[in-house]
Simulated scan of single mutants.
Amino acid sequence: MSKLSAPRRIPDPPAVPPPSRCRTYAELHWIEGEIEHWIRFGAEVENVIVSRRTRIVGFDAGTLFALVRWSSNDYGTTASRIDIVRAPTADEGYTTLPFVRPGGDSLLSVRGWPKVQIVLRAIDAIEALSIDPGEVAPDYWRHLHNRIAAGQSPRDYSRARHSVWLLRRRLLS
């Protein structure tokens, strides 16, 4: 007499969406002269208007974006901040950040208007080279963050450095 084996159960697929459909969302608020959040760079793939003063933008996994947050009251600026974030894939860990869901790989996080201005000038200099800041090597944003934190001048991003990054990215993919 042959023994019948119990039917094998096929495990359910993971609850996480596939990496190609994984998105990171940034919530943007705009109340003129009080609270202003905006995206300085980054390829938005989704844009949802929640109200006249709030919208949510989505970024695909791997996308770099810069979120600028500024607020003030009757006495002047109370907070200014810029975060440069890489949207994570479904299987990567991430850091939670205010107004970013679920979070991201934080490459640069700077507070205070003088420091934010240094980052904005660096972004402008990169754009002057006709390079999309969203395509810049993530290591450069970490370098910029660390040099600002140490109170030192950051090195400029160059076309040569960008070419090396593009070659490295091609080799890693």
Score class of each variant (00 low, 15 high):
Asp91Pro: 00
Ala66Pro: 02
Ala66Tyr: 04
Pro88Ser: 05
Arg86Gln: 15
Leu97His: 03
Leu67Glu: 02
Ser71His: 11
Leu97Ile: 15
Thr63Lys: 02
Val68Ala: 12
Asp83Leu: 12
Val119Ile: 12
Val119Met: 09
Ala79Ile: 01
Trp113Asn: 08
Val116Phe: 04
Asp91Arg: 10
Arg101Asp: 14
Gly112Cys: 10
Gly103Ala: 07
Arg69Gln: 11
Val110Met: 06
Ser106Arg: 15
Ser80Glu: 15
Thr96Glu: 12
Pro88Gln: 11
Leu107Glu: 07
Pro114Trp: 02
Pro102Ile: 06
Gly62Cys: 09
Val116Asn: 02
Gly103Tyr: 00
Phe99Asn: 10
Gly112Ala: 09
Ile84Gly: 01
Val68His: 15
Leu67Thr: 01
Gly103Met: 05
Trp113Leu: 13
Val85Ala: 06
Ser72Tyr: 07
Asn73Asp: 15
Val100Cys: 03
Ser109Leu: 13
Tyr94Gln: 04
Asp105Arg: 13
Arg86Lys: 14
Ile82Lys: 07
Trp70Arg: 13
Thr77Met: 14
Glu92Ala: 12
Ser80Phe: 00
Val85Gly: 08
Arg86Phe: 05
Ser71Cys: 07
Pro114Ile: 07
Leu67Trp: 00
Ser71Lys: 13
Tyr94Ile: 11
Ile82Thr: 13
Asp105His: 14
Glu92Ser: 12
Gln117Met: 10
Val116His: 09
Ser80Met: 12
Glu92Met: 05
Trp113Val: 04
Thr95Met: 11
Tyr75Ala: 11
Gly62Phe: 10
Tyr75Val: 09
Ile84Ser: 05
Ile118Pro: 00
Leu97Cys: 09
Asn73Gly: 15
Asp91Leu: 09
Thr96Tyr: 06
Ser106Asp: 08
Pro98Tyr: 03
Gly103Glu: 00
Ala90Asn: 08
Trp113Cys: 00
Leu107Trp: 02
Gly93Thr: 14
Gly104Asn: 04
Arg81Thr: 06
Leu64Ile: 05
Val110Gly: 05
Arg101Tyr: 08
Val119Trp: 01
Leu64Asn: 01
Pro114Cys: 00
Leu120His: 10
Thr78Ile: 13
Arg101Ile: 06
Ile84Asn: 07
Gly112His: 03
Gly104Arg: 03
Arg86Pro: 02
Ala87His: 02
Trp113Pro: 03
Val68Arg: 11
Thr63Arg: 10
Ala87Cys: 11
Thr63Ser: 14
Leu97Gln: 04
Pro98Trp: 01
Ala66His: 03
Val110Phe: 07
Asp105Ser: 10
Gly62Asp: 04
Asp105Val: 11
Gly62Ser: 08
Thr89Phe: 15
Arg81Val: 01
Ile118Asp: 04
Arg86Gly: 02
Thr77Glu: 14
Val116Trp: 01
Val119Gly: 05
Leu108Ile: 09
Ser71Tyr: 00
Ser106Gln: 14
Ser72Val: 05
Ala87Tyr: 03
Trp70Met: 05
Ala61Met: 03
Leu107Val: 01
Leu107Gln: 05
Gly104Tyr: 10
Val85Cys: 09
Pro98Ile: 08
Gly93Cys: 09
Asp105Trp: 00
Asp91Gly: 06
Thr95His: 14
Phe99Ala: 13
Val68Tyr: 15
Leu108Lys: 09
Thr63Met: 07
Leu97Trp: 00
Asp83Glu: 14
Phe99Leu: 13
Leu108Val: 09
Pro88Glu: 09
Thr77Pro: 08
